[in-house]
Design a protein around this nucleic acid. Sequence first.
DNA 1: CATCGAACCAACC
DNA 2: GGTTGGTTCGATG
Length: 121
Amino acid sequence: MLAYKDGRLVKASLGDIAEAAYMLIQLVPPGRVTTYGSIARLLGVSPRLIGRILASNKRPIIIPCHRVVKSDGSLGGYSMKGGVGFKERLLRLEGVRLTRNKRIPRENIIDLCEELCGGKN
DNA sequence: CATCGAACCAACC
DNA sequence: GGTTGGTTCGATG
C-alpha cells in the first residue's frame, strides 16, 4: 500500500508503485500517450523510477506500457523483444502519428491529470 | 523544430 | 561509494 504524507510519498514498495503506474497507464485511451514524468508526478516518484518499473514490468502485454513515452515526445525505450521498433508499430496501429524524427506530436500526448480530472469530474 | 549537455532519483555493483 | 538507466529541462543551431 502506498503511504502519502502531506501529498508526499513517504513509504512504498516498488511493486505497489508499479501497480499504481500500471493502473494509470491502463486508463490512457488509445491514440493517446502519456509521459513518464506525468505518472511520476502523480505517484510522487522520480521519472527514472517509472522507467525502471516499466522496464521490469511484471505484467507485459496486460499493461500498455507502449503508451508511455518521454516528455519531449520521443519513444524512450521498450524492454520487450521488439524494442522501440515494436513500440512504434503498436502506437501507429492505435493511430498515433510519428514525425520523421520518431517523435509524437504534443496533441497526442496527454497528462494523466488531464485524463483523470480534465475529461469529466 | 532538432540536437547537445547537465541535473535528478533510485536501483545496482 | 561510484555508475547507470525506458528521463527532464534549458540553451543553441
